[in-house]
Design a protein around this nucleic acid. Structure first.
Lengths: 262, 262
DNA sequence: AAACCTAGTTTCACTATTTGGAACTGCAAA
DNA sequence: TTTGCAGTTCCAAATAGTGAAACTAGGTTT
């Protein structure tokens, strides 16, 4: 599991608890949390109180249920805005998705997984939190592989090892070795494909977003289904994709934050 | 200031620090935070370390800058999904915005302010974190007033008192008293207007979203500009708005979370 | 080159906070 | 009334947080 280790005292414990509430995916009772928790009742209780107090959790006193709090939404708004990638890339995603007529994803690397930070779907132009903030596996998505491929040797090795390989479809790569071979290939070609590795009938072409010093800033992909395009036809997007990725990288690089903030 | 008080030990301090980083709105240096902080160097340092460790902050070691971390985006995604209002209201917002042909906002109350959790703009159908998570004043926005008006006496009084009144435009209500009068009116009519109170030329009509027991769950508004509609013409949306608000309320009410989560 | 900053990091004795077993409360079922 | 469960409070012991001061690493001045 991707849950952070707890060497960070009370704060760590509190955040781990937040994750737990998030993982349940719906409001939870105290007792539900208690059985899964290694904390004694009193401790858990106080932890929940603190988080609720702080607005990181919400508490419905009628139903006695805890859920994630509004403060998170505010913070995330700020996080998204000041992450140098997403806000800058916005207009470029629009362009790309319009030109390609297909769904475009923007992702960043997070502990070897893909964190999707933006998305454009020309067919149903509705995106929101429901899309951004999602995470996906690193070893069997186009963006994931594109980003992994361009990390430096050391990081790449580490992250490749710590993937938790699971065979989603017949073509999923399920070993570190297979992934490594694939990554080498991707590094040579400068482009990655998802060949229905994560979901049947869903394919994509992806490129890394690199800084001037070739640091991996994120990844960009065009996703479609096998009913609309073949893998081969997907290559047609290659130039546009690479160009957009390059532009985003440059923009992110050059856009240093204003020195003053009146 | 909306900054939470610090009776919550280390966790409180850590979260306050997160807010501070968020408030700056761009990556910050250690020293920048230090001057504003009441903590001594060492303490601040450890706090930052912990948060960085936990992925709540990101650290760019090249530039020595802290910024909000990816974990927030993940958590917010979960928060948004499990807040009973926003995901449920989605299709209804679509409908309403389509029918009205104007921008629709969905908000919730947060410490007397409006937290926008969703938005539809038929003209430029691109919404993302950049819109959700924003907060606005409670006393001079349609949604804010609609929600405040329908709180019970006690809460309403408290929140009306703690607004920090600021005259955005000539028509902004800038006293608790004026606001109270307005709220009474709104309660009678069941609908609130923003008469360019927050921004010149921007007007809106808003309704509260209530639970079966008349608890305020959120607020809904249709926003437009004086160049397109007059305040009077805005009334034409009243029925649709009220109906949608009622529907959202009922859905939220009845949609109890599934008991099991496989 | 030595002296001197400034910005960030580490140490360590001191102290405040957190901890958790156990005891309490409130409520609902037996 | 008794029993049981869910949530809350207490308090002595243990732990984790604190912050003055010392240190380090770069860069800048003398």
């Amino acid at each position: 599991m991707a849950t952070a280790k707890n060497n960070d005292g009370t704060v760590g414990k509190a955040l781990a608890l937040l994750d737990k509430v998030a993982a349940v995916g719906r409001p939870v009772r105290f007792s539900e949390l208690l059985v899964e928790s290694e904390h004694p009742k009193a401790t858990l209780y106080r932890l929940l109180q603190t988080l609720t107090n702080q607005g990181m959790l919400g508490y419905d006193s009628e139903r006695q249920m805890y859920s994630l709090g509004v403060r998170l939404v505010k913070l995330a708004h700020a996080a998204w805005q000041q992450s140098s990638l997403a806000p800058i890339a916005r207009p470029l995603l629009d362009q790309l998705s319009l030109k390609a007529g297909e769904t475009v994803h923007l992702g960043q690397l997070d502990h070897g997984q893909v964190l999707y930070v933006d998305k454009r779907n020309p067919a149903s132009p509705l995106t929101m939190f429901s899309d951004a903030g999602k995470i996906g596996p690193g070893y069997c998505t186009g963006i994931g592989k594109a980003m992994l491929a361009f990390l430096d040797q050391e990081q790449r090795q580490r992250l490749v090892q710590q993937q938790s390989y699971h065979r989603y479809t017949a073509s999923t790569l399920v070993s570190a070795q297979a992934l490594c071979t694939e990554l080498t290939e991707i590094r040579q070609q400068g482009i990655a494909f998802d060949r229905e590795e994560h979901e049947a009938n869903i394919i994509c072409i992806a490129a890394p977003i690199l800084s001037g010093t070739n640091k991996v800033l994120g990844g960009l992909s065009i996703t479609t289904s096998t009913s609309r395009y073949s893998l081969l036809q997907l290559e047609a997007f290659k130039q546009d994709l690479l160009e957009t990725a390059r532009n985003i990288g440059q923009l992110a690089e050059s856009w240093h934050f204003p020195e003053t903030n009146s």
